[in-house]
């Protein structure tokens, strides 16, 4: 596989995405809202009774941090689902497939194009979140809660893996259906397992500590490989060209 070819596809897709304002807003808005909303919740919660107790703050902050695994699982959906189906809608897939490029190079290019804005928006949101949270909780905790190892693992391992898994699911969905909406709906299902992990952490089934996060990262990495294999195997150019109407 030639990475340069994939990058050509990705650069073109990024150019198209930047001009599609609705897609861009969807990617930017969710992390921005969450990054501002959670600090607001912390600020307003229990204001009359002196705010959230300092002992409970780290539990809450580590729970909120897991949202930066859920966010990158959600936001690539509009871009990734548009990737293959969008080419089909614009009928640009046939000339693209006629060029000397492999299926793997096309899919990798499409994945890079969905990954970069998603992860950039997640990181930007996380930066806002950490700064706001630290400024709001420093007086009570007496130290800066962020950055910490947990957030480091989330941002450097889990968030990219979650984004990659979501993109792969979306690419698989895009290859199998013929309209963008269905592809988006199927691709969006990827965030459900992460919400499940979050809920399991909240109700005490698992503890979202550093070790658990590393185990989750290892499982996700294995899934990324499996889904990449499935995504290339399910991308059948002949079927896409002859059966999509």
């Amino acid at each position: 596989m030639r990475l340069r070819k994939s990058w050509i596809i990705a650069a073109k897709d990024l150019k198209v995405i930047i001009r599609k304002r609705t897609v861009l807003y969807t990617v930017v808005m969710l992390p921005l809202i969450i990054s501002i909303l959670f600090p607001v919740v912390i600020e307003l919660s229990g204001q009359k009774s002196g705010g959230i107790p300092a002992a409970y703050l780290p539990v809450l902050l580590s729970a909120f941090a897991f949202f930066y695994v859920i966010i990158p699982a959600i936001i690539p959906t509009p871009i990734a689902s548009y990737s293959i189906v969008g080419e089909k809608v614009e009928k640009s897939l046939e000339p693209l497939l006629a060029t000397p490029i492999t299926d793997g190079e096309i899919l990798l290019g499409k994945s890079i194009a969905a990954f970069i804005p998603s992860i950039a928006a997640t990181y930007a949101g996380a930066a806002i979140f950490m700064v706001l949270m630290d400024s709001l909780t420093y007086s009570k905790l007496g130290y800066l809660y962020y950055p910490n190892w947990g957030m480091g693992i989330i941002l450097l391992l889990l968030a990219p893996l979650a984004a990659t898994l979501s993109i792969e699911m979306n690419v698989i969905a895009s290859s199998r259906v013929s309209d963008v909406r269905t592809a988006s709906q199927l691709g969006a299902l990827m965030f459900i397992p992460f919400v499940g992990i979050y809920v399991a952490g909240e109700i005490g089934i698992i503890t979202l500590d550093t070790n658990t996060l590393l185990i989750i990262a290892a499982i996700m990495a294995a899934l990324v490989l499996v889904l990449f294999y499935i995504s290339t195997a399910t991308f059948r150019r002949e079927e896409i060209l002859t059966k999509w109407k």
């Binding site: 198209v16 640009s92 046939e94 006629a98």
Partner: peptide, 17 residues
């Protein structure tokens, strides 16, 4: 694919570019 050029029945351009 390197030595051919194709103009399909649906031109399939990138309208945003």
């Amino acid at each position: 694919r390197k030595i051919i050029g194709l103009v399909p029945d649906n031109v399939g351009l990138y309208d945003g570019l």
